[in-house]
């Protein structure tokens, strides 16, 4: 049996873990290719216009996969920590996919809600779902793997996730350049080399090394307690905390926040960062990315931003 994972949205956070766990169940995992113009425009054709860009691209990834797999892995992720939510579009993702695309294979849409059930239970339920498949029963090895083993795997992976994510997405290999710019934003926008409009590639071409990091849990908690009110979006918390982290990090010369134009939480985070963090201390700029195909505007802004930092060093 082949299960397909679309290479979009939470894939950029959990893709490796999902792949490993499903493999451990004895299932062949296929992922869609990296986002391209073709995938995105297919996705846009199948979505309503007010969805955000990464969700539209996700539809494109589903379309690219659906005819080659027996089922699709699109869990319904509600909470990844007890006191915060993901955006409603993650909660409704499997339903939106079903409503938008016809002739789909079966969707494994097991609910992930850490407040109601631990991660191990989630994987138990996934396993139960997959065992219901007749082809699956033919494979003996899946039975042999205990849920405990899967859980251990999950824990190890989570530990390594933060530092691995950069290497995985080729952000770090340009570390020999002289200027370092930190990028903040949602992983599925920043790390997707097509959706980010080549921001990373373009900055590397200008001789700038790019850093992307997710701060640790304690640091996020500390950041939240500095705000007038806690943020109740998990990724929003990470974005705001990572900007604060990079403002403090002396090895980072400037920060670019990449916001998603169609994203409700992002429009809020951008304002919150402007209003509560000392962004005037370092060159800081926010870019909002949408469907536009011409990247001239983006390049002008990045070029001017890099120039600003360089000339500051040169003349001070």
């Amino acid at each position: 049996m082949r299960i397909g994972i679309p290479q979009g949205l939470l894939y950029f956070k959990n893709g490796r873990l999902w792949k490993r766990n499903l493999n451990a169940l004895g299932i062949e995992v296929v992922t869609s290719p990296e986002t391209t113009e073709g995938i995105l425009s297919d996705g846009i054709r199948h979505s309503v216009c007010d969805l955000c860009l990464p969700v539209k691209a996700f539809f494109g990834h589903v379309l690219a996969l659906k005819d080659n797999v027996d089922c699709l892995f699109i869990p319904r992720v509600i909470r990844v920590e007890p006191d915060a939510f993901l955006c409603p579009k993650f909660i409704g993702l499997p339903d939106m996919v079903r409503a938008a695309i016809r002739n789909l294979p079966r969707i494994i849409d097991t609910e992930f809600n850490i407040k109601e059930k631990p991660e191990a239970v989630f994987w138990q339920e996934v396993r139960r779902e997959l065992k219901g498949d007749r082809k699956m029963l033919l494979r003996g090895e899946a039975e042999a793997i205990s849920t405990n083993e899967i859980l251990r795997c999950a824990q190890n992976d989570r530990k390594r996730r933060n530092d691995k994510i950069e290497k995985d997405h080729r952000l770090q290999k340009f570390s020999e350049h002289k200027l370092t710019v930190g990028i903040a934003g949602r992983p599925y926008l920043v790390l997707d080399n097509y959706l980010n409009k080549g921001v990373v590639r373009y900055m590397n071409r200008l001789g700038v090394s790019v850093v992307y990091q997710t701060p640790e849990k304690n640091y996020i908690i500390e950041t939240m307690s500095m705000l007038p009110k806690w943020i109740y979006w998990s990724m929003g918390k990470e974005v705001v905390s990572s900007v604060r982290r990079m403002l403090e990090d002396e090895s980072i010369d400037g920060i670019i926040l990449i916001a998603n134009a169609g994203c409700g939480p992002d429009s809020f985070m951008t304002e919150l960062i402007d209003g509560t963090l000392p962004v005037h201390k370092k060159p800081y700029m926010s870019l909002s990315i949408d469907e536009h195909l011409s990247d001239a505007g983006l390049q002008t802004r990045i070029e001017a931003f890099v120039d600003m930092i360089e000339r500051k060093f040169k003349y001070n």
């Binding site: 505007g297 001017a304 000339r311 003349y315």
Partner: peptide, 13 residues
């Protein structure tokens, strides 16, 4: 400030 660009903004799309 002091003859160096320290911040800028541009119109949106």
């Amino acid at each position: 400030r002091d003859g160096v660009v320290i911040d800028f903004s541009m119109n949106t799309v």
